[in-house]
Write a protein that binds this DNA or RNA. Sequence first.
DNA 1: ATGGACATGTAAGCCGTTACATGATTTG
DNA 2: CAAATCATGTAACGGCTTACATGTCCAT
Lengths: 179, 179
Amino acid sequence: MALEHAILVSLAERSASGYELGRRFDASIGHFWSATHQQIYKVLGRMADAGLVAVQEVEQEGRPDKKVYAITDDGRAELRRWTAEPTPPERLRSTFAVKLRALPFGDRDAILADVRRQRDHHREKLAYYTESAARFYPDPTALDDDAIAGWLVLSGGIRTEQGAIDWCDDILQTLGEER
Amino acid sequence: MALEHAILVSLAERSASGYELGRRFDASIGHFWSATHQQIYKVLGRMADAGLVAVQEVEQEGRPDKKVYAITDDGRAELRRWTAEPTPPERLRSTFAVKLRALPFGDRDAILADVRRQRDHHREKLAYYTESAARFYPDPTALDDDAIAGWLVLSGGIRTEQGAIDWCDDILQTLGEER
DNA sequence: ATGGACATGTAAGCCGTTACATGATTTG
DNA sequence: CAAATCATGTAACGGCTTACATGTCCAT
């Protein structure tokens, strides 16, 4: 159900075609809620039927026609209603944690290599986030209400990635010493 | 696919009935990979067909009969093979982050209440983890190879929960001052 | 001419949740 | 007497992924 609301948030920020939404889910919003274009098109269709979004077909030259989706008043009302609802506690699903736990039954060197690989991923994400922070929120003490949400989410991402990197360092230090 | 491997890890540590596995997924292992009993029974059936686990029916007095599942040599081989495979980068899905981002379009007070509620959840989890750490790993500098994996996963959980709490504090401080 | 960006979809199938279903024993 | 624990399942439905499908324009 949360994909619907992620789309509503994204369209509330700016109207877009399904394709464009797909790009956003590859980048900004997608760092916290991923979705493929197939899924987005399906859900957009359902949301249009429900009146949460309005479609307008736009002809283009030199490019395929597109359908631009905009949030409706009903969509805004639904988004507002949803924010007033308590969020159920998120249960995390970490393949990596399961694999770590499999250490006594697995290939130690391969798992260590995996830890380094995970750390690399987290470093890349962290670099991307800090760069975005510097570009879009150069002065976090002076943000208007609209920008502050984006900043808070981004700073959560930075925190998460840094935490993951520290954890990987911890693992490598603990396991690396006994070689 | 990871549920299969989470079950293999759990059965490698100790054989169990489907019900017992369900309890483990409510507690220890389930903090990093959740699953309901319905799903567990279904997957166990499939895994038994594939020869990854062996079933033995056990009659009990005063209690319903049960089926005890044990990992097979094929299961151990599969688990080992899986650990040697690189883990794809985990994409996180955070309803909470989406809701935070909806701040400009939502109910500010309700969202702040939600942040406090999330913080409470994370505090409870952290308390549970630190207690488990103190009970099961009183001296983390002296752990054998079998115990070290459990400790590393648990310390990752502690890190994650502490990070989430800090994030919530940060959000409340940033948003709370402007009342 | 090959590949990437733009643009929108269908279909098959697995994964996962929620609800339903049954039944004995122990504990409060 | 009610509720919790032990124990195993089926059924329906929705979410999500992977693969397939099509077609134009632009740059190398």
